[in-house]
Design a protein around this nucleic acid. Structure first.
Lengths: 221, 221
DNA sequence: GGCGGTCTTCAGCTGTTCTTCAGCTCGGTG
DNA sequence: CACCGAGCTGAAGAACAGCTGAAGACCGCC
């Protein structure tokens, strides 16, 4: 399973190879050296798993970050620490950690634990939810506040892709390649379909597909 | 990847061509002949990579400098020495060196190793923090004291560049080349955008972008 | 071949953002 | 304290990105 992983670790010598290994395993990785702007990054990036070092520079340690995650996201937590104290472990689980690794560790061990957590989470239901919109790719069904939407093939594909990457800015180029499989850049093609999608979506609620000027589009409740 | 490199080497005949080669590769280079004021330079310059000679005049050798880097910066370290003793190599790695080159060396070899280290680091975490401001270039997110800032494309680029070089005075010429890609000197263009940025930033706190009269601008908490 | 629906292209419109300009303020200097 | 250059900022309009209605191309179906 491919997941979005957020690695918060201050030591380059540990973070860099770890991130490389995770990328090698097909995951999408975001790195941070400390807890600065953690909430904002989580909201924007919506990781499936957070790998948190316990000891971090700055005001907040890994426990504080794990606590901040609760309620904000259904993201799993893997704590990393240099200390092998039992009370650390307990504090970690109390803060909502799903698992725990002790430094020094083998990169493969971490990879295995990440895989285990992601498998355990199961997930990958074919439906994505954004606010009051539910998109079920298997059933090819889009529902907004109880109302089924009548979408054309292209519109559905576009909406499914946007919703599947909610909270992230997707460029027109990216949409063109992912949804249309095109190489050439024709921004208007995307614009026309976004416009049509919006007309149908906004009959049942406020705007979900937002314009990020000069960058692309984002789906957000 | 373009990086800031700090070269500490006492022999002019080695340092000068090395610095020239690194500049030729697109890096920004700062040179020093010994370890005097090392910490201050690191804090002010925030190098991505330090090239440290082991044998240095004055009280401190390359190992001492490498040790001083740890905890102070997430900068990578490449040690340079005339001695090819195994215990030197071990001491170097123990002190946190990422790689090691032995004199006499070919300049291209050093360039290759610098490239390898920087690739391995995989561009340092994308978020920069200055006081209560956090700028995440990947997520294209600027947050000040918990409030997301609504910035236009140019404003964001400018802020990201300024924040990424916090504590350093950046001339208007430099900003024009780096942010706009312009050649001609139009100071007012920069001034107008700095003015707009300040208006948005200073709604949530004190001044961060300071004017260095006759020199340019600095970002500082 | 004709028909209905969908996709793509086109062109005009709108609102935003960038750049230029002009007049002002500020700080240093004699 | 007056002057001068550097920097600041409000306003105007040029340039640009994005939106959308409409027309034509395309495709499958009868």
């Amino acid at each position: 399973m491919v997941a979005r992983v957020l690695v918060v670790e201050d030591e380059d010598a540990i973070r860099a190879p770890l991130a490389a290994a995770l990328r090698g395993a097909g995951h999408e990785v975001r790195e941070a050296a400390d807890g600065a702007g953690f909430e904002e990054v989580v909201d924007a990036y919506r990781p499936d798993l957070a790998l948190l070092d316990v000891q971090l520079p700055g005001g907040r340690d890994g426990f504080a970050l794990a606590a901040a995650l609760r309620g904000r996201s259904d993201c799993a937590v893997l704590m990393v620490t240099a200390r092998d104290a039992v009370d650390d472990r307990l504090r970690g689980f109390a803060a909502g950690a799903d698992d725990y690794v002790v430094k020094p560790f083998a990169t493969v061990e971490v990879l295995a634990r990440v895989g285990a957590i992601l498998r355990r989470l199961g997930r990958v239901p074919s439906t994505v939810q954004v606010g009051d919109l539910v998109v079920d790719e298997d059933a090819r069904l889009a529902v907004r506040s109880g109302q089924a939407l009548e979408l054309t093939a292209t519109e559905f594909k576009l909406l499914a892709y946007l919703a599947g990457h909610r909270g992230r800015i997707l460029s027109k180029t990216q949409l063109l390649t992912q949804v249309w499989g095109y190489d050439e850049y024709d921004p208007n093609l995307v614009e026309v379909h976004v416009s049509a999608l919006r007309r149908k979506l906004e009959q049942h609620g406020p705007r979900l597909i937002h314009t990020a000027r000069g960058l692309g589009y984002v789906v957000r409740p």
